[in-house]
């Protein structure tokens, strides 16, 4: 069982209890305007170019025979400053688990474990479940938009120890407008989560003028009741990665 991930980050301090390593799944059904992980949007590998370090040697444009470089027309194996990298690695669940398990003892001793983030981990449900099965009995956590069919959500919920789920906008129309999807499934899954016995946290990114409005926050508060709720301040530097991917941050919320 293979899936595609774009990063593995050790010591992600905001991704659940204790010392944790976070796996970022590539690909997401949502298109939140403020997204700060643009390399997590598509399910395909993407070329990321860190232009700021470029010394202008043009080595990467001289052509090469590496199959992985082919789709991008530039060689990623020749840059003296390591400016080019491919975001997105197709990986087998067992192999990835073996890699992660090398530090499992340290993480476990420090009351932590592994977190699945993205992108949207629920968008690769079989891979996610396969990976979770390989990593058990270590403490597993997910950071999700909650956007998935209820059967998928239930199946994943059962395998994990801690859920961090976003509720970004309470209003379905605004949710559609700013994330490209309705929040029907998300709110339905939230009910499933609330009725489960799993510990969870709800998160709302505070996007100026969009999610941080009085109305939205009041509506979310009413929806989630006494659930544990974290409001995350918006990172103004979030757009930096778009340029590296040759993408435009057209929907910058500050605009």
């Amino acid at each position: 069982m293979t899936g595609i991930v774009f990063d593995i980050k050790e010591m992600a301090v905001h991704d659940g209890p204790g010392l944790r390593t976070t796996v970022f799944f590539k690909g997401c059904p949502l298109r939140c305007r403020w997204c700060h992980n643009p390399e997590g949007l598509t399910f395909q590998p993407q070329l990321m170019v860190k232009d700021a370090r470029c010394i202008g040697c043009k080595n990467c444009q001289k052509g090469c025979d590496h199959p992985e470089c082919k789709p991008f027309g530039r060689c990623i194996h020749v840059c003296p400053e390591n400016c080019l990298e491919i975001a997105g690695r197709q990986v087998d669940a067992k192999a990835l688990a073996a890699e992660l398990l090398q530090t499992a003892e340290i993480l476990g001793d420090a009351f932590g474990g592994f977190t699945f983030s993205g992108g949207e981990p629920l968008a690769q449900p079989e891979f996610l479940l396969a990976l979770a099965a390989e990593l058990k009995p270590h403490h597993l956590c997910i950071e999700t938009s909650g956007f998935a069919g209820p059967e998928i959500f239930r199946a994943v919920l059962e395998q994990l120890d801690y859920i961090i789920m976003d509720i970004k906008l309470a209003d379905p129309v605004l949710h559609q407008q700013y994330t490209g999807q309705s929040n029907d499934q998300i709110l339905h899954n939230f009910e499933i989560l609330r009725q489960s016995s799993k510990p969870y946290t709800i998160r709302t990114p505070l996007i100026p003028g969009i999610t941080d409005t009085k109305e939205n926050l009041a509506a979310i508060a009413a929806l989630i009741g006494d659930s544990n709720w974290e409001k995350l301040p918006y990172n103004a530097a979030a757009g930096a990665k778009y340029k590296m991917l040759g993408m435009k941050f057209e929907n910058h919320p500050a605009k």
């Binding site: 010591m11 420090a110 932590g112």
Partner: peptide, 22 residues
């Protein structure tokens, strides 16, 4: 920024403890 919240401070402390324990 890792030290911005108490939780981050505790986690860095745990990392140090791991180093010592190992």
């Amino acid at each position: 920024s890792i030290f911005a919240e108490e939780d981050g401070i505790e986690k860095v402390g745990m990392l140090v403890k791991s180093f010592i324990d190992r």
